[in-house]
């Protein structure tokens, strides 16, 4: 790998070093301002020197990283400038700190500026890697993101597919899955068990035409996120109803062409009047 690129990729790791060091210095300094009698156990100026050094190093690595051009230019430019300003500021801070401590207003200004710079630079950097609004997303939960579930790893995907399932992601980025069983061969029971490892991901389960019985279905009990289920053209019968009733989030059940009787469906309807159930009576 290209050396510069390698160096650049260290940036996300490296930035935390000056942030931590400088925050420590700022905290100690803040305490000292509040309580001039406070005797810091550590040499704050020394910490500032180390922190500024680390900041310069971060800037360099950040510059190297920016060369690969994968980031939006505007945001990148802002973060870059803030990075320069921050590191120069802290060098200055370190240089004048011991002299400035005696002047309360100056001291406070320095500390506050330091905190402000550190936060904005860090935030801009965060936005670059995690997308804009990453931070606020926590404050006001974004409609699109609130349901997102961690995406599966390759191995997890493979484990589901190996069991014969087809995974149809519901939408990009939300981690929710629709699992389809048209191609299930062999033991459906085993295949269903495999699914119970992913209770948070599976929202829809299409078992249409699979050769499954009520007994096979037992393991879907653990799929607590399940919203829709298709059991049409299977050997499901009335005794699966109790099981279906356990699934709190279900809002769609398809029992077309199964052995489920009319009374079974009525029973379902009575217990869960809001669920859409087919065949509709």
């Amino acid at each position: 790998m290209n050396l510069i690129e390698f160096f650049g990729r260290l940036h996300p790791v490296m930035v935390h070093l000056p942030i931590g060091i400088l925050l420590l210095a700022l905290t100690l300094d803040g305490v000292e301002w509040k309580n001039p009698k406070f005797q810091s156990p550590l040499n704050i100026q020394f910490i500032l020197w180390i922190g500024s050094g680390a900041a310069i190093f971060s800037v360099l690595s950040g510059y190297a990283l920016s060369q690969n051009g994968d980031y939006p230019i505007d945001q990148l430019e802002q973060h870059k400038r803030l990075g320069y300003i921050t590191s120069i500021f802290f060098l200055f801070y370190a240089a004048v700190r011991n002299w400035m401590v005696s002047k309360r207003i100056g001291h406070l200004t320095l500390t506050l500026c330091g905190i402000l710079l550190l936060i904005t630079t860090g935030h801009k950097g965060g936005s670059l890697t995690h997308g804009e609004g990453y931070l606020y997303a926590l404050v006001e939960p974004n409609k699109d993101q609130k349901n997102s579930t961690a995406t599966l790893t390759d191995e997890e995907v493979k484990s589901i597919e190996d069991a014969g399932w087809v995974i149809a992601p519901i939408a990009a980025g939300d981690g929710k899955l629709r699992i389809v069983g048209f191609n299930i061969e062999g033991s459906a029971q085993q295949a269903l068990k495999q699914l119970s490892n992913f209770p948070d991901h599976i929202e829809e389960l299409k078992l249409s035409y699979a050769s499954i019985t009520n007994a096979d279905l037992q393991s879907i009990r653990s799929l607590t996120a399940l919203k829709k289920i298709w059991l049409d053209h299977t050997r499901a019968s009335d005794s699966c109803i109790a099981l279906l009733l356990e699934l709190e989030k279900l809002n769609y059940i398809n029992l077309t062409s199964t052995s489920v009787t009319e009374s079974g469906i009525i029973q379902l309807k009575q217990k869960k009047p809001r669920i859409t159930i087919y065949p509709a009576l």
Partner: peptide, 11 residues
Amino acid sequence: MIALGIVFWKF
């Protein structure tokens, strides 16, 4: 030093 050198050269 090499890394710094390259970065500064670029600068």
